[in-house]
Amino acid sequence: MAQAGEDIKNYPGFMPITLFCLVVLYAPLLVVMIYSFNESKSITVWQGLSFKWYVDVFVGPESAKFKEAAINSFSIAIVAALAATAIATSAATGMLRGGSFRGRGFSFGLINLPLIVPEIVTAVATLIFFSAIDFERGYLTILVAHIAFCIPFAYMPIAARMQGIEDTYEQAAMDLYANKTQAFRLVLFPLMLPGIVSGFILAFIISLDDFIITNFVKGAGIETLPTAIFGAVKQGIKPNIMAISTMLLAVSIVMVTISYFVGKSGDKLKQPPGEK
């Protein structure tokens, strides 16, 4: 009864729920995107298509504030993601190519600590730490905090990728007289690259999006895009905030899509010829 075999998998109502789930996930974002193109200054009535709020973001009265916040956000995200990716690549090599050793479990726990500890607790702890060592809060404290909590996000795809690479590759390289550094640089690293790119992109997005930790460690007088948006929203949702949000949203979606396709192309490379 092949027909029954297929039928047994399907439950009535599950497809509508799935579609509902997607509507729930996307509707709020779509609504904000649409209203960011609204001509009207009021957010309740639709008065026709307009790009004026996007223009307002770049040249309007608040443009200087947004520009500064954007520069802070993007420079921190790039540096934090680069640092976190380098640290995570190195850590993944140590964890997965370093044999077994005492404290491996602890090491793994430490790498994942920012995922286990609630974000607000990390925020409080970091604030207390910088205050206790009397380190002035500002750009540097945000950067350091971001590097730390981005590490597990960079580590996940890199380690997953590395687990799929058999050690025969670097063994072969060393049989052909490559030293260990060369084997890493010329063989292992290129094979890991899709994972490393995914790791960098995820770390970048996580840094760009962070509000809670940034809000605690930023100190007065410095804003990133999320803290600037939060401050503005406290006075009510204005159309220019929706325009900024839409742009930020687009950046995230483009980055995730790139990461997805990089990961996919990596999957193809990973499959050894002759298998399947």
Binding site: L96, R97, G98, S100, R104, Q163, A183
Partner: peptide, 12 residues
């Protein structure tokens, strides 16, 4: 729970 087993010790 500790992230899979260590595969190899190339860089021990």
């Amino acid at each position: 729970a500790s992230g899979g087993k260590a595969q190899t010790d190339t860089y021990k």
